[in-house]
Simulated assay, not measured.
Amino acid sequence: MDCDQLVRNGYVIVPDFLSAAHTRLLYQYAQQLPDYEWQQAGIGRADDYSTNTRIRQDKIRWLSRANTLETNYLNGLETLRLQLNRELFMGLFDYECHLAHYPPGAFYRKHLDAFKGRSNRILTTVLYLNPDWSSTDGGQLVIYGQRQEILETVLPEAGKLVLFLSDKFVHEVLAGQRDRYSITGWFRLNASIGGVIDPSR
């Protein structure tokens, strides 16, 4: 991965970050998960947590090391965490992520993943799983600059990874025409209090 681009721009887009075979297995795995494994995604945290389908309409499933396929992905992101710490001295402590399923027509309005000084989420990652995705399918990730100008419109192509600073870039997910699967995650600092990682502020 080009760490220099991440330093220059605050974000980087990595085509083919994950092999086609591994991406396909994750895509098939996400597709076959039963409905009860998914939960409606929400906004906010702890006492401020709520679901609001006018803002966010995806469903999520958190990854864990209880499953071999999920573990393999988490191991790959652990390797990336170590690279980022080695090359950029970011002090990233751990990583959390979830599968995201956007049914046809689902979207996520403009938002920030973290507010400066109020979260230990430092870097956001999004990995796309759908094969044969075209611009007519929609579902793009739009990344905005400080003046709300569009910096990138990212087509969710299989194996592509997007990383960006969580507290800097407002972004949104446009509605798509097909079921859209991805893995969204965050590299975090260690801001634990009383044994609780990333406690509510």
Rank of each mutant, 00 (worst) to 15 (best):
M90H: 02
V12Q: 11
S119K: 02
L63F: 09
T125N: 05
F17K: 07
T53W: 03
R147D: 12
R65P: 02
F17R: 05
V154G: 02
G10H: 03
L112I: 04
G145A: 05
K59W: 07
G185C: 08
P104S: 00
R147E: 12
D179E: 15
I150G: 04
P199E: 04
Q177E: 15
L82G: 08
F17C: 02
T71M: 09
D137T: 03
V14H: 14
P156D: 01
R45T: 07
L161Y: 08
G194L: 06
V142R: 12
Y11A: 01
S192E: 15
L112C: 06
G44N: 06
L151R: 06
G159F: 11
D94L: 02
T153H: 01
P156G: 05
L80R: 01
K160C: 13
Y181G: 05
L26M: 15
R65W: 10
N190C: 00
A106G: 03
P131K: 10
Q31W: 06
K116I: 00
Q146K: 15
A41L: 00
Q5D: 10
L25M: 12
L77T: 15
I193F: 10
S64F: 03
Q28A: 05
N130A: 05
G10Y: 07
E172C: 03
S119Q: 06
L74Y: 01
Y102T: 00
V196R: 13
Y36A: 12
D113Q: 01
Q40M: 09
A66I: 09
F107R: 10
R86A: 11
G185A: 06
Y11G: 03
T53M: 09
E87C: 05
A46W: 06
R201M: 04
N67C: 14
L141S: 01
Q40W: 06
T125G: 02
